[in-house]
Design a binder for these strands. Structure first.
Ligand SMILES: NC(=O)c1ccc[n+]([C@@H]2O[C@H](COP(=O)([O-])OP(=O)(O)OC[C@H]3O[C@@H](n4cnc5c(N)ncnc54)[C@H](O)[C@@H]3O)[C@@H](O)[C@H]2O)c1
Ligand SMILES: NC(=O)c1ccc[n+]([C@@H]2O[C@H](COP(=O)([O-])OP(=O)(O)OC[C@H]3O[C@@H](n4cnc5c(N)ncnc54)[C@H](O)[C@@H]3O)[C@@H](O)[C@H]2O)c1
Lengths: 231, 231
DNA sequence: GTCCCCTTGTGAACGGATGCACAAAGTGGG
DNA sequence: CCCACTTTGTGCATCCGTTCACAAGGGGAC
């Protein structure tokens, strides 16, 4: 029986937990700003919009940072989660594609406040190159590799049209980047070891539309009645 | 006591499947543009970046629309998925908060092309109200309820600062809206029956940072930890 | 020091999602 | 008409995530 041992994740934190840690962090920062020193899993879960047992299990993956009978020290937990997420260091981010969306992202203040620093803005359009946005000058896409290497960029945000996204991804990966946040509505093909996360407005709207349609038709008529009605 | 079913499945389509249908649809549209008439689950799965068994199981939830030995008719499948997602009808969307992000969204062409129509832009800032963006005039937030009711808005996009988001949500829900797409970095509290989806740049970056840190520090890293996760 | 109360951390049951593997079903060639 | 080939649709085993429920542990009152 050469079956992989279940304990495969060394110090492994489940993906679902990782995805929630930023939410907890945000809630904790809110509490800290209001001067709260300690918080129970119940209260923190409420602020984060999750079940308290889930919250406790999530935090238990980081270690035993709570005090039974009391709760969690807000500042200490902020520090532990930040460290776990890698936010105690500074991440250089480059934004490729400085159109409507790229400009909004470049101007977004929430970036800097959390350990992320926009280190470069790149675009292919000569009419855009040279523009000054949020204190940075847009550079030509030809300099992509040198921007990445010289400024220690480790995360790239792609905000180009869909047609250009794969090509941009290939180049930044070749330059050593292994973390990509993709806004273009296209499935990127990347080698193993490269992390791609996507933000897709269109998909989110379609999911909402699906549920919305259910609500409308749900009470009124049977879903089967719709089959073959349109077209 | 009759308890309301939490969500999603009326005719029983799993949430995970619903979230992938838009991806399949996009891949199918790409194939259709290139003149492909039929496609196998293997090829479509490749284009959508998923496992072919998963794709077949997903499609089986809609019905039996494939032909064994042949594959799926591209046009027919596009129609069936569109219908299932509710894209054969027109959805009126209002965008609340017309700042950097709200403008980018308003200018986004991908909106209209898929059954969604921007029916209103609203903002609280008198300096912004009256601006013309993508053919629409920004209206004052005071008119929120009348815009929703008079134009049949059923989906609201919130792109205000975090501090205003809950208040905006409360108002649109009171006006009858049950589908919200939230860009503000805050957990919205809503009653049962209201669907909220969020897009959070900051969270996505923090998740990337987590994995990136693992790569850098991790001699103790296992392949499972960085397997690409394109949804 | 002792006891009571509170909250954490986790074992265990459950349910949903994934992917393998194959029978069922349809096509086309001879 | 039959057979070989292709691909769908799905039963099943497994894995991952969620939630309940409670024992274990710590704090504070007296
Ligand atoms: N605007 C939105 O709200 C929104 C919403 C969801 C998704 N998106 C997606 O985000 C992407 C950007 O949207 P946008 O509205 O900003 O588009 P845009 O056309 O305004 O901007 C795209 C920019 O990318 C640049 N570009 C093109 N090819 C390039 C290349 N090879 N290298 C570098 N830069 C290149 C263009 O010069 C342009 O400045 C698109 O894929 C779009 O589908 C946008
Ligand atoms: N810009 C980005 O790339 C980006 C990225 C991620 C998240 N966000 C979030 O999206 C939201 C908007 O970001 P932004 O950069 O466009 O901010 P912004 O400040 O440029 O725009 C916010 C707009 O909302 C309006 N507003 C304020 N209160 C309002 C109210 N009660 N009702 C209606 N309108 C109101 C303001 O007048 C302003 O025009 C913020 O919550 C931000 O954190 C933005």
């Amino acid at each position: 029986m050469i079956r992989r041992i279940p304990s495969a994740r060394e110090r492994g934190i489940p993906d679902a937990t990782v995805a929630r840690l930023p939410v907890y962090l945000r809630a904790l920062n809110g509490l800290a700003e209001r001067g709260t020193a300690t918080v129970s899993s119940e209260d923190l879960a409420l602020a984060a919009g999750v079940n308290s047992a889930k919250l406790r299990k999530d935090l238990s993956h980081l270690g035993s940072y709570g005090t039974r009978g009391v709760g969690y020290d807000v500042q200490y937990l902020i520090y532990q989660i930040s460290r776990e997420l890698g936010l105690t260091q500074d991440w250089a981010v480059a934004i490729v594609g400085v159109g409507n969306l790229g400009r909004a992202l470049a101007n977004y203040g929430g970036f800097v406040s959390r350990g992320f620093r926009v280190a470069g803005l790149l675009d292919a359009d000569p009419g855009v190159v040279g523009d000054r946005i949020a204190g940075l000058v847009v550079e030509h896409i030809d300099g992509l590799e040198s921007v990445i290497l010289n400024r220690g960029v480790s995360i790239v945000v792609i905000a180009t049209p869909a047609a250009a996204a794969q090509q941009v991804a290939d180049r930044v990966i070749a330059a050593g980047v292994t973390s990509i946040l993709n806004f273009a509505p296209v499935v990127l093909t990347v080698p193993d070891g490269v992390d791609v996360r996507k933000v897709d407005l269109s998909i989110e709207l379609q999911i909402l539309a699906f549920h919305e349609q259910r609500k409308v038709t749900g009470g009124a008529m049977l879903p089967e009645d719709w089959a073959g009605e349109v077209g």
